[in-house]
């Protein structure tokens, strides 16, 4: 109908619905709005970048002055000038020694089971839904689980093993989902070729599927570890003490980690001014660790990327 009216050059008796002059006048306005809004959207996108810049500037200007070899290697102390974070660094490393292997075994095992063995049916979708939902459970609730099961029921106390297991369960869905995606991306013709040679299922998984998906799996593991390194709430819940603790030397020792140190120094910064700068300095260390891990993940992804 409209098309007809637009195209008719001849002056007919037909009523014209589109007045070209009006349309064009409105067009100018519409294009103007479009342009203005475009810049608004752009500005809003930049908001995130600006905030990130602010955040970094604030933390680095606050904390860089405190960063020194002494700060990294000294033990905790109530005296700002003598305090260091070696305890928190050691605790973080210890924690990773639990979280890494535990999530890797549980996560990759679960992913292989779901992708290669479980029959697609009710049970499969039950586990899958369960993992999706676990990923959305607030971390503090995992902390309560750890407190109830590992700290009290198993009697581990607020130790590395209790914290590590709690954290491992928290980040497990990340590893499972990433591994599943990586395994699913292995083309079926590779599996067929292996089966065609008389390989058994497990031989095929071990020799073909896992090597082909290892990059994706490792990326997932590193992501999970970086989440665990920065996570604070579950450790607060299982009762990591604010007190000065000796540097841990076994998995049953009490411990503290970088985020916990940041937490206590931040809330106590109302009492001692220097604590805010010390928290900022610790944040720099934490962010540096995370940056390093993510770089490793990117390198792995690029290096192992396979053409299929």
């Amino acid at each position: 109908m409209k098309e007809l009216a637009l195209n008719s050059n001849e002056k007919t008796t037909q009523k014209q619905y589109m007045n070209l002059a009006k349309v064009n006048r409105r067009m100018t306005a519409r294009l103007l709005i479009n342009n203005v809004v475009k810049y608004l959207f752009f500005a809003s996108t930049m908001f995130g970048l600006v905030i990130l810049a602010f955040l970094m500037y604030q933390i680095f200007s606050d904390g860089l002055g405190w960063l020194s070899m002494d700060f990294l290697t000294n033990r905790l102390s109530t005296l700002p000038e003598r305090a260091g974070i070696i305890g928190a660094i050691t605790g973080t490393v210890w924690l990773m020694f639990i979280v890494g292997p535990v999530t890797m075994v549980l996560g990759i095992g679960t992913a292989i089971y779901l992708e290669e063995y479980a029959k697609k049916g009710k049970f499969h979708s039950f586990i899958q839904t369960n993992i999706t939902n676990l990923a959305g459970v607030p971390s503090i609730v995992f902390g309560l689980l750890g407190l109830t099961i590992f700290v009290r029921m198993f009697g581990f106390g607020p130790s590395i093993i209790a914290g590590g297991l709690t954290m491992a369960l928290l980040v497990l869905p990340i590893v499972v989902v990433a591994s599943q995606e990586a395994i699913r991306a292995v083309p079926s013709y590779l599996r067929e070729a292996s089966y065609g040679m008389g390989a058994t299922k497990w031989q095929t998984i071990k020799n073909i599927v896992l090597p082909a998906s290892i990059a994706g799996i490792l990326t997932g593991v590193i992501l999970a570890l970086s989440r665990a390194i920065g996570e604070t709430a579950p450790l607060v819940a299982i009762g990591i003490p604010a007190l000065i603790v000796p540097i841990p030397s076994s998995i049953t020792d009490n411990f503290t980690v970088l985020p916990m140190q940041i937490y206590y120094w931040t809330i106590d910064s109302v009492l001692v001014d220097e604590y805010a700068s010390m928290a900022a300095a610790t944040i720099i260390v934490l962010l540096a660790v995370l940056f390093l891990m993510n770089s490793v993940a990117i390198i792995i992804r690029n290096k192992f990327q396979k053409r299929y």
């Binding site: 996108t45 990130l52 602010f54 390194i229 920065g230 604070t232 940041i262 805010a276 928290a279 995370l290």
Partner: peptide, 23 residues
């Protein structure tokens, strides 16, 4: 832009807490 936004997503919440409280 996307990687920067991803960085924003990867910052631990404790850092945001510090940012809120002290800045």
């Amino acid at each position: 832009v996307k990687p920067v936004i991803e960085v924003l997503a990867g910052i631990p919440t404790i850092v945001y807490g510090f940012f809120a409280f002290t800045f």
